[in-house]
Amino acid sequence: MPDADYRLYLMASAAIFTIGFYSMLTQAHLLRRIMAFNVMGCGVFLLFITLAARAPGPVPDPVPHAMVLTGIVVSVCATGLALALAGRVQTVTGKTELEPGEDAGGRSGAAHHGSSA
């Protein structure tokens, strides 16, 4: 792979990762945040693929491919879990967002495990 292409792919993966992370920080809707996570993941996988393609010789390095496959499995599981949890949050609280105030920590009121759904 020519150096110019390589750099382009590198920058693209960095850009995708950053866009994903930016959305993760700024979006409120849980579904959007879960999608943002997947976008971030795509950035990382693209980086792996780019690195594999740079290997000397005609055959790309197989190791990063294996890693990407593993990574995809992990991220699919994560997405499934996150969607299920977001669904529960919506059922219980009726909202699709997290309360921003809780970020400060420690003000979650009279919460203990007795106050369950």
């Binding site: 849980l30 996150a82 997290l98 809780e102 106050s115 369950s116």
Partner: peptide, 18 residues
């Protein structure tokens, strides 16, 4: 399973995944 636990877990998950 309560309101607070679910919200805290959701936040934990997003932070952890990122």
């Amino acid at each position: 399973g309560g309101r607070d636990a679910l919200a805290a877990a959701m936040r934990y998950l997003l932070v952890s995944l990122s």
